[in-house]
Design a protein around this nucleic acid. Structure first.
Lengths: 244, 244
DNA sequence: GCATTCAAATTGTCAGACATTTAAATGTAA
DNA sequence: TTACATTTAAATGTCTGACAATTTGAATGC
């Protein structure tokens, strides 16, 4: 493995970066064991705590996993879809919450991405994903639902729509886009009337997918986008004018 | 801040998770200073190295940044688009390289996502993004170009297409999808003939965007997808039959 | 042959110390 | 008073050494 020259940045960051490059370049392959902390410390001419900090950085990115005991150590981790989902959602959520992204921009991105997988979903939707969508639609019609629960169900519905496309890479990519919108959506107070309208759009989408009608599904999705946009704008307008 | 009960997992992981939740929930806001390492160690009743490992985990996810010196410390970091891009690309690249994703699936996801922003790109493309696309097309026509350089230019072209949509959230989401395909594309040997065909599609796309013709751009993109798919399949077929 | 025990390797945690960096506080001179 | 140099304090970065906890493989005993 390569070493670090004489620059003055954090040693642990440099070491983490060096190992990360080895993994990204495929020179360290999945399930391969890294040298022990003591050996790495010796190799990079630093102390063990410094090596440990570097390894923790990599562990935080799911690049390695560690195992205690004899013949334990740090191993290159196979990045699972589940872990990738989690990181994607964390990153997307923070990006949206910290950068004053307008509701309009986030909404546009989300629906553009969902439209991307709608034709595939119309082609490949399964009884399973359809059942999930129907179940969420039913839940959204329940009277006693809180706004948060309604939003969560909305997210689940759209996740099912995305998963219907049957492309795991697409599902992974869109997980963040859909989930990250939830905090923004949670700011909206859903009246009985608006819930009814949204459930109507959801039903149109599910019906269209069931009938393999891509165009109809796209139209319903676009209509839902437009409606969501007006709801969001009302909230923003009310917030901008806090005089009672 | 909350503490951790008596479970037996890594203390540093638990502490990192506790702080991460504070940030995600907005209870720690951007640029807010965390307690010093000594104070955190005291608060969680652990040693300073353990706290440091936890902080390095958070730093690896760009959740915090640290600053040395008096009045330094760990601060909640505003996640920038640049940092988010980087993490997105790392995650997507590893996911594709480690999970035996088929070329077809990755290709389908990529072009579905690009189609998602093509209508917006046709609407909003700027002289700037068009110039970038033209420049990359020109580079792709140069004779002496290596396969790697051709691929890199291809990625740059598609990045410009995505950026044309003028939606930073969309650009962020697609950065990973486009970049992560490069290692797969790099396996393809681009003959003079195939380069010529690809440049033709790129030109059609750029022309369509320049003329605000969304439908034409979508058609060219789909044709490019189909052609890329045949190229990839040829490579896979040749690889599956290694008898000279 | 099988269960038990033991030893070794490795990560997890701790304590204390020193080095380095940074900005505020202080002192000094024009 | 202002400008500049010096000191100081607080914080992170790093090192050393030690011990605890965990896991595996081998030795041991029956």
């Amino acid at each position: 493995m390569k070493i670090d020259p004489d620059n003055k940045a954090d040693l642990s960051a440099q070491i983490a970066e060096a190992i990360r490059e080895e993994i990204m370049a495929g020179r360290l392959i999945v399930d391969e064991r890294l040298p022990s902390e003591a050996e790495l410390a010796d190799h990079f001419a630093v102390s063990r705590p410094t090596v440990r900090e570097a390894l923790k950085r990599l562990a935080a990115q799911s690049l390695i996993r560690t195992q205690r005991g004899a013949f334990g150590g740090a191993f290159v981790n196979r990045l699972s879809y589940t872990e990738a989902y989690g990181q994607q959602i964390t990153t997307a959520t923070l990006l949206l919450s910290m950068n004053a992204i307008s509701f309009d921009v986030a909404c546009e991105a989300r629906y553009a991405l969902e439209r991307a997988c709608t034709p595939l979903a119309a082609l490949r939707r399964t009884p399973d994903t359809l059942a999930t969508m129907r179940a969420e639609i039913h839940r959204q019609g329940q009277p006693g639902l809180t706004d948060e629960a309604f939003c969560a169900s909305d997210v689940a519905f759209h996740r099912a729509l995305v998963d219907s496309a049957g492309n795991p890479v697409l599902s992974y990519q869109l997980a963040g886009a859909v989930e990250a919108m939830q905090p923004l959506m949670n700011m909206i107070t859903f009246t009985a009337r608006s819930r009814e309208v949204i459930v109507g759009f959801h039903t149109r989408i599910a019906d269209a997918l069931e009938g393999h009608e891509a165009e109809a599904a796209l139209a319903a999705l676009s209509a839902l986008e437009a409606y969501t946009l007006t709801l969001g704008r009302d909230v923003m307008a009310a917030r901008a004018r806090p005089k009672r």
